[in-house]
């Protein structure tokens, strides 16, 4: 019997702490598989965020750094500039990247910093208990938008991928989703591409992954994926937003 599919060695044996049905686990696996398949485990250095993925350093089986909230792209910059042969990636949520870390991601992108950014967008602050994120949809109820996000009061969600794609610096920007197997396969391709770009020295690559948060959305894992598909994808269209030759 041949192995069709098994857990990659680029993930440690530590059980993931994420809630049941949280898609962080899928995205971790895709990132780990991409690194494994490209044969760069020994060069990989991951930068973990503050947020649900704060313990990512326990899961990715490579050297890791834990950054302050929003600062992962700056930490990755320092690390990459010291050892340009390392394959440096950040793994950040929407609060981390699009709110408190908006400056760091924008400037890493515009510098064309040769790093790979995995941006997990689930439209909410998960770790702190479901507060409004910069990516929370209009009308979406969170613990700090209990009457639904009112754009007249607190503005509109940010489309990070489209925004960063306006810059000259980035080499590759794509938005993918993990709500079903087909999209997971596509997400994997994009993530692998984003690492490939770095390895080839092409520069800044970011993959925004639409993700679910069953716990803080107050849904079953199944309902959450359906909600993602029906509500998030219209707000955040999938696809490659920028790619240099």
């Amino acid at each position: 019997m041949a192995v069709v599919y098994e857990k990659t060695k680029m993930l440690t044996d530590k059980p993931l702490h994420y809630c049941p049905g949280c898609t962080h686990g899928i995205i971790h696996r895709l990132v780990a598989e991409a690194i494994d398949e490209l044969g760069v485990q020994d060069k990989a250095i991951g930068v973990a965020p503050v947020g649900c993925a704060v313990f990512a350093y326990d899961y990715f089986n490579c050297d890791m750094m834990e950054a302050a909230h929003g600062r992962a792209p700056a930490v990755a910059t320092g690390c990459k500039r010291v050892n340009p042969n390392n394959v440096v990636f950040t793994y950040q949520g929407d609060g981390d990247l699009a709110s408190i870390g908006a400056a760091e991601i924008t400037h890493a992108a515009t510098r064309g910093e040769n790093i790979t950014v995995i941006f997990v967008n689930n439209a909410i602050y998960g770790m702190t208990g479901g507060q409004m994120a910069p990516t929370t949809l209009p009308g979406q109820v969170t613990t700090t938008s209990p009457y639904g996000r009112d754009p007249n009061h607190c503005g509109y969600p940010i489309r990070v991928s489209e925004m960063l794609a306006t810059l000259d610096g980035p080499a590759y920007i794509a938005r993918v989703s993990v709500h079903d197997v087909k999209h997971i396969m596509e997400a994997k391709k994009a993530i692998k591409k984003a690492f490939q770009m770095q390895i080839e020295g092409k520069g800044f690559a970011l993959v925004e992954v639409l993700s679910s948060c069953p716990t803080n959305w107050g849904m079953t894992p199944q309902e959450a994926l359906k909600w993602l598909q029906e509500n998030m994808i219209p707000q955040y269209p999938l696809g490659v937003k920028k790619e240099v030759e």
């Binding site: 930068v47 750094m65 600062r71 700056a74 930490v75 990755a76 320092g78 690390c79 010291v82 390392n86």
Partner: peptide
């Protein structure tokens, strides 16, 4: 050698964190 003007003091010190974490004198 590498000099980089950061986007803010906040970013600069976190670049220091990354470079120091990678073993450099920074």
């Amino acid at each position: 050698g590498c000099f980089l003007q950061a986007e803010s003091e906040v970013a600069a010190i976190n670049m220091v964190y990354g470079a120091a974490g990678a073993g450099a004198r920074v």
